[in-house]
Amino acid sequence: MNEVSLWTGFWPFTPERFAIWVGAILTLCIYSFLYRDNPFYKFAEHLLVGVSAGYWALIYWNANIVGQLLVPVLRGGVLLPLVPGVLGLLMFTRFFPRFAWISRYAIAFYVGGYAGLAIPSYMQARVLAQVHAAMAPTVSITAALLLIGLICSLLYFFFSREHKGVLGGASRIGIWFLMVGFGASFGYTVMARVSLLIGRMQFLFRDWLGLIR
């Protein structure tokens, strides 16, 4: 890094250039946490929390209140969105301790409705589809290992019996299979995180400092 590249990276002063500088300085503020907690990190942290609160408030307002309630009701004449609209209003009763219990109806409706929608989907995608795929002929060592790993892992999550004897042995094999799987997943995810770091470094060294092309 040298002064010339910094200066040329700052001039001419355009909105895009200004945004890059703000982004770069905030990135460095957040990275300063790697050393220790400090005022720069605190500043970036509070700014991030505040900006994101405002950002998400607007997103929710536009996507949910305007997009799914006001527009369909006022412009489309559809009355059904009024039902969730009223349930949403019930959440505001939390501000009045005497009537706060009313908000539980909205939460109950939300959780119950979602459970009804989600259970068949979960059962299909995470149970039946897996069972269907698992029923393959075991004609190779790989297939046999897959079957043993599957059954032993399922046995590890069997809570109705103490894990002793045969069940204990099988569940121990199951946890080994799980740990091998987690190890592979760990490596895979770390690679993804490293690519995120590379992206940020590219932002700093290419977009901000112009040191790489």
Partner: peptide, 18 residues
């Protein structure tokens, strides 16, 4: 704290250290 994933993480990290 925040709906934003990393803003939430940053704020919780702050709580842990302070």
């Amino acid at each position: 704290l925040s709906d934003a994933q990393f803003a939430f993480a940053a704020a919780v990290n702050g709580i842990m250290l302070r």
